[in-house]
């Protein structure tokens, strides 16, 4: 198991826009550099990318809710 951590404090989103599908669903393959979610920090959106390859397991943070820097956002099976 490996965790994707938030690089910055802000608000976490698991979709590129409210109408869009989730970036990843359980069982999806994940390559290094794949976007897992977005962090909105000071009105700027920053993509959070996977640093490991593996299989997506689950989101650990809630969509649209504040997160702290270093907080676990998602879990992968590597």
């Amino acid at each position: 198991m490996a965790q994707v951590l938030s690089p910055l404090p802000g608000t976490f989103y698991m979709k590129p826009s409210p109408e869009a599908a989730l970036y990843k669903n359980p069982g999806d393959p994940v390559a290094v550099g794949d976007t897992i979610g977005l962090i909105e920090v000071m009105k700027t959106f920053i993509e959070v990318k996977a640093e490991f390859a593996g299989t997506f397991s689950a989101y650990l943070a809630v969509d649209g809710v504040p997160v702290t820097a270093g907080q676990a956002l998602a879990e992968l099976v590597v």
């Binding site: 404090p9 909105e40 000071m42 009105k43």
Partner: peptide, 10 residues
Amino acid sequence: GYQIPPFYDS
């Protein structure tokens, strides 16, 4: 000691 919140403009 003030933590600038990340939720608003910069």
